[in-house]
Design a protein around this nucleic acid. Structure first.
Lengths: 340, 340
DNA sequence: CAAAATGGCCAAAGCGCTTTGGAAGGCTCT
DNA sequence: AGAGCCTTCCAAAGCGCTTTGGCCATTTTG
């Protein structure tokens, strides 16, 4: 059933039927009702390919997926996707993933924009002065960034959590509990979120005249193994930290293992706070010692980003509105006063 | 730059240029070269929307993503996606995720087929007599199943690992080490892979006159917490198992925690083998006691599925070829002879 | 009361490809 | 020499929508 057939059986022109269906004003309400009714009764659905060709709109949102033999997709991605799906499902919005060589995403961005394959894109894990941002900005496709970049002379729409504030609060608590030597096990130091977390922590320490020595920062990919290694190096140092703040739950698993291997205890010898993106399959309260966390659901962020992308596509949102979500600090058994 | 312009500047008809570009035989090799050359020089790329409208082919593969407030996307999905991307990247194949209400995926399947949004789909985590399989089979869209179903009177193309064999081998090893009471912590019992694993284990036990009691099987969603709970119930039983086979690394984390909480040790009091899908962020060799595993890279499976989907789209593969990959049994410190 | 504005509809021209149904020219073959 | 056959190319007809420009009848306006 296509438009031609439908309009013929209604004895109307394609124009009128099309307009009626798409809510244009220049059609009689009575006629519109007739059309709507017939369309529903015959299960008419406009052919998206044809509509795309005519309008240039695809009704899909895009994501360029960096891939490569040495590239692992972040497990957080799945949670983000759940959130995106939560929103997209009820709006018949599809998501197209375009795999790209991680060393050359630009080609792919250009392709999907030139081909008008998607109406909007989102960008995740941005870095300062991230090229992708500058690119999509000049390409003129609607987008929303999950996270923040830095060092641009233009504004852009984003959704980020208050990483700096979160780690500031975490460190502040530890300092108040008497800890003097704190350490940070961070994610990739080139990503903005990691920079912000470090900044927040430094700020909290500085407020009490403390500093974060180079030896007390480790920036690594977020795996259990890296968490373990980082913790070992920190704890086997001549001046080991008495508290660690850690950028992910998965790394925290490694930290806990290292602590155990060294015959230390949490929170007796070491206080630990980690950031929790809220995975259904790994929960901080179930750690051997319930883990204190800075918590922010990445799934909710996914849903919100989908919502904003949809809004930007339909013109309901414009401008460069940045949105920063506060982060909860949830205190559990893994923090205690500094050992004496 | 579109076909019209290109053909005009070559003083050729659109027909000829189109044919030259798409490798049809009825065009002079000399002309074809000229066309190819000009196309490359001017960076001509056929408009996919137009091509879609004309041919009905989209050049994309689809996946219906079950979502819902109570539905979590499997973290394995991300690894699978990495593999898919490994192949798709070099073939300019995009993946479109269509979020669907987990209780009604049929509507979405019908939509994407009716709309010709994708050229092929893949189906994951099938159950016996899975409705989706019957559906796509009748809808007539090319597909490949990741995993296997059961109880159909038609064959279908799939890629699966030898779950039954893997768990058979794992259990056989444990029996040979003298274990008499084995337990299984499985995934969702309604999914085929879980059924196969249980079957494999039962077969191994039966071969030695042993059985797997109802109390010694737990089927749960694969989270750390569920692994913990299942292990506690098993180990606090009047007749606790001396060995556990576990369907995922994440659940194994919970098992290890339970063992510890109960003051037991691995492998002294309990031998443990888990299935490893090969996550970059959690590796069995880094468990407190290196974990024995049945191992199969889900990422490689993703790449292979993408390859087969592409082959089916282009007609290089047809029929209902099923492909079953063997699974490695990797023995590490977590298994030992049964306690005396 | 003529002129202008409005409401409701339509025919046809795109959108940029692929594909059908020739057609022209050169060749071989009887 | 004419029929028949390749080879190589082309004009034009889709694919199924949206949108432009206009038409007619009715209503409003000065």
């Amino acid at each position: 059933m296509n438009l031609k057939q439908l309009s013929h059986m209604l004895s109307l022109s394609q124009t009128t039927v099309s307009r009626a269906l798409n809510g244009y004003p220049e059609v009689n309400e009575e006629t519109r009702r007739r059309v709507m009714d017939a369309a529903k009764r015959h299960g008419y659905r406009p052919n998206p390919s044809a509509r795309r060709l005519a309008t240039g709109k695809s009704g899909m949102i895009g994501y360029v997926l960096p891939t490569g033999a040495a590239v692992d997709i972040d497990p957080h991605f799945v949670e983000f996707l759940s959130g995106l799906g939560d929103y997209a499902r009820s709006h018949e919005l599809d998501l197209v993933l375009s795999p790209a060589d991680a060393d050359d995403e630009e080609t792919t961005y250009r392709r999907i924009v030139a081909n008008r394959q998607v109406d909007a894109v989102y960008i995740s894990s941005p870095r300062p002065a991230d090229k992708r941002l500058a690119l999509v900005n000049t390409l003129g496709i609607p987008f929303v960034v999950h996270g923040r970049s830095e060092g641009f002379d233009f504004d852009y729409p984003y959704l980020d959590i208050d990483n700096e504030g979160a780690f500031h609060e975490a460190a502040r608590l530890l300092v108040q509990l008497g800890h003097q030597r704190l350490a940070l096990i961070n994610g990739n130091e080139r990503e903005t979120f990691a920079i912000h977390r470090e900044r927040g922590m430094r700020r909290a320490l500085a407020a009490s005249g403390l500093t974060l020595g180079e030896r007390h920062i480790r920036s690594v990919a977020m795996t259990e193994e890296n968490g373990y290694r980082a913790a070992r190096r920190l704890l086997e140092d001549a001046e080991p930290p008495t508290a660690i703040v850690c950028s992910s739950l998965i790394m925290a698993l490694g930290v806990v293992r290292a602590v155990r291997d060294l015959g230390l205890t949490i929170p007796g010898d070491l206080s630990l706070i980690a950031h929790d993106d809220v995975f259904p399959w790994l929960r901080p309260e179930n750690f051997p010692v319930p883990l204190s966390t800075t918590r922010s659901s990445i799934r909710l962020a996914g849903a919100r980003i989908a919502e904003r992308l949809a809004a930007r596509i339909s013109g309901l949102e414009d401008g460069a509105r940045g949105e920063v979500w506060p982060v909860d600090l949830v205190v559990r058994g893994s923090v205690a006063g500094a050992p004496v």
